[in-house]
């Protein structure tokens, strides 16, 4: 019995020490991690979509409650007007969810651009949806309110060759976003205005 108690005590103490140490490290690094996440996961896509804006959209951000979930919006200021927001949506690829950043001109509801943030697609094929500028360029100027589809599905987007599924997933992500975009538009307009310079 004595050795069992010793076992339990040693294990518990050790686990507790570990827990404490980790909690300490976590609290020390938390703020930094959050910014890093923003910068490296979503940042590149946002900045690319909002190329030429005069503000730092990573700083100029706001959140809107959409039922249960909270959605983040990044504001781009062009010509002094905060007329563009970027937000994230998700589509299904075959490697899991594909994170899609959608930039919309809130005045015209036109797509300003699209960027892929996170994905688990096959390198070299599906991942080209993220890297291939010509694929992304097709989205520019489309209307957010219209469904976006790849050509085999009767849409207007040329799929990345060999990665139809991924392309389809991206389009679906964009299309899905129009739903909550429309739903939240009033709040967005309101919040975005605050960033105008």
């Amino acid at each position: 019995m004595r050795d069992i108690i010793r076992m339990i005590v040693v294990l518990a103490v050790m686990a507790a020490c570990g827990g404490a140490l980790l909690a300490g490290v976590k609290s020390g690094t938390a703020a930094k991690i959050e910014y890093q996440q923003l910068k490296f996961v979503k940042g590149p896509a946002i900045i690319e979509i909002l190329e030429g804006c005069s503000n730092d959209p990573l700083v100029d951000r706001f959140k809107v409650k959409d039922g249960e979930v909270e959605r983040g919006f990044y504001v781009g200021v062009f010509d002094g007007k905060a007329n563009t927001v970027v937000f994230e949506s998700f589509g299904k690829g075959f490697g899991g969810d594909i994170g899609v950043m959608v930039g919309v001109n809130i005045e015209t509801d036109e797509l300003l651009g699209m960027g892929v943030t996170t994905h688990a697609e096959t390198p070299g094929l599906g991942s080209r949806a993220k890297d291939d500028p010509s694929f992304r360029a097709q989205f520019k100027g489309l209307s957010i309110t219209e469904p976006v589809k790849v050509k085999p599905d009767g849409g207007q987007i040329d799929a990345v060759s060999g990665a139809t599924i991924t392309s389809r997933g991206v389009c679906q992500g964009v299309t899905d976003s129009s739903a909550f975009y429309s739903r939240l538009k009033p709040q967005i307009l309101e919040q975005a205005r605050a960033f105008a310079k």
Partner: peptide
Amino acid sequence: MIEALLLMMGLGAVAGTLLGIASK
């Protein structure tokens, strides 16, 4: 902080107890 500590301690204790008793 304290949750982490307690959780880990509990986990360690439970695991230890379980294994100790099981091995008997």
